[in-house]
Simulated assay, not measured.
Amino acid sequence: MTGVAGAEGFASRLIPAWLAVALPQGEGPAPVIEALGDDGPRTTLAQCRTVFALAHLARVADRPDLLDAAHRIHGFVSLHLRGADWGHRFSDGQGPDACLRRSYDQSFALLSVAALMRAGSDRVDARDLHRIWDFIETRLIEPATGALWQDERGPDSPDTRSQNPQMHMLEAVLEAHAATGDPVWLARAEGLAAVGLRHFVDPATGAVREFTGPDLEPTDDASGTRREPGHQYEWAWLLHCLADATGRDDLRKAAARMTEFAETHGLRRGGPLDGAPFEAVDATGRPTLPEHLLWPLTEAGKLHARLGHRDRTIRIADIIFGAYFAPDHDPRWINRLDAEGRTTWDAALTRLLYHVAIFVTEGHRAGCWRIGPATA
């Protein structure tokens, strides 16, 4: 199956076939599985990412059936994962970790509600966005810096601070701006981008650091020198989205430096996965985890699509749908391959569909393929 065929059938064939096994029959609130064959606790991360992916695809590909499925999962989230204060717990499992409210998870709760609004849902409105944001602002943002704590424990959270919650919160507030047109969300996006650029970008290379110390200062240990090519592309895509909304060329320049680092140091050269991003490199660009997860390919692909790089986008689609997904829209996929294209992690993780959904809609938006009559 070519990449174009895989992308074109993602919303119309693969996702409905997957929902037939991932979502219980019926019409009421229900969760999706966390992975094929996984009957464990349901997480805010996977459930809200799936709500976003289905609502996003419903809007772009004109698939009302996917919005119906998104509503059922959102109903489960509202009943079992969201608290009275609108903070969302890690999972519906048992124990203190399951009850913890992480910044990372709140970003996807916000993202999912905004995507439902954009898809025309009558189950949510702007008040829901503000309720989630109120929890984030009062419980999760460090007043002195504007940076997110890792979770609601604030300064008592684990020692390292991660760029990932900052990045996904930027994504969520951009979606909220697109859903409402309210300039307050754009101002929040600019604030979150400023935090990321100030505290999580290495000024020497322009690359995104994965982790800092608890004071947001860089460290020289393995976590402090870790750079993930996939996150260089993901941040760059978000900065281009924000630049499109604000006209700020400085954001495009920062995105270009991130992309240059990833393109220079972070890609496999030669072999069946030629052009696939490594899982991780160090601060100098030396590969430290030289295998290939699925999600970084989608991040590279959606950036190339947004920049109009048609050939690169289609090449990435060929790798994704030719090497990671089963043929003929069979709803199975794998998470990681080695340099020779051999499977090293075969989990069909539900949370990965969010990444693929954005990639195929960005390729649709760029004219690389068509997934439905609507436009992104």
Rank of each mutant, 00 (worst) to 15 (best):
G224A: 10
D182L: 08
V113Y: 11
H80M: 03
V124W: 11
E190G: 07
E234Q: 03
R49A: 13
A357M: 07
V356F: 05
E171I: 04
P64F: 11
L337Y: 04
A46N: 04
E291S: 11
D97Q: 04
L174D: 12
G87T: 04
A147D: 00
M117F: 11
G26C: 07
H309E: 15
L352P: 11
C241T: 10
T180S: 11
L14Q: 15
D85M: 01
F52G: 12
R351L: 03
G154K: 03
I358E: 08
L192D: 04
R89I: 10
R332P: 14
H329N: 13
G83L: 12
L273F: 05
R63P: 11
V195W: 04
A53N: 13
A339G: 06
E291A: 11
A255V: 06
A69C: 13
A283I: 06
R118D: 14
D311E: 12
T44D: 00
A46K: 03
W333C: 13
Q47Y: 07
G247P: 01
H231M: 07
E175L: 07
E291C: 08
T2W: 01
V4Q: 08
D85Y: 02
A283L: 06
V184F: 05
S12I: 12
R49N: 15
I320A: 00
D330T: 09
T361C: 12
A374C: 12
V184I: 06
D105C: 02
Q150F: 03
C48R: 12
